[in-house]
């Protein structure tokens, strides 16, 4: 059962992503399924990722926006907070009390946070120091 809030919210978010996309980020729904979105983040200047386009896969869970979206890197990325499968260690992508997702966040702000994480890795909470996976 999807939450009654999901559809109206997702439609509005897709419209917002189209009309005012966040800087350096491009996000659009897949043709067949509104709850599966694709995103691209441009690597910032003066970072190792400069000139790179990083693809991400976004899946919207049934209980969205009461649960965070599932986001994974599709493009391999060398980053201490992203593992080999593209999973991202970011507190806003997890529900409280472990994480800090809340419904005031949305796809756009989450993607912006990921883009900030790419500029500013978080060595205190690594997913791969030397391939050491963090315990969820």
């Amino acid at each position: 059962m999807t939450s009654p809030q999901l559809l109206s919210r997702l439609k509005r978010e897709i419209q917002m992503l189209e009309e005012e996309p966040p800087h350096g980020i491009y996000c659009w729904p897949s043709e067949t399924n509104m709850r599966h979105l694709h995103a691209q983040i441009r690597g910032y200047e003066k970072t190792p990722y400069e000139n790179g386009i990083f693809k991400l896969d976004i899946r919207i869970p049934d209980r969205y926006p009461f649960e965070p979206p599932h986001i994974q890197f599709k493009t391999p990325i060398y980053h201490p907070n992203v593992d080999n499968d593209g999973r991202i260690c970011l507190d806003i992508l997890k529900l409280p009390p472990k994480g800090s997702w809340k419904p005031s966040l949305n796809i756009s702000t989450v993607l912006t946070s990921i883009s900030v994480l790419m500029q500013d890795p978080n060595p205190d909470d690594p997913l791969l120091t030397e391939i050491v996976s963090c315990v969820y």
């Binding site: 809030q5 109206s8 419904p103 005031s104």
Partner: peptide
């Protein structure tokens, strides 16, 4: 303003 959670004015139930 719309609801801060479902982003809409009217929630259909």
């Amino acid at each position: 303003d719309a609801c801060g959670i479902c982003y809409s004015h009217y929630l259909t139930i």
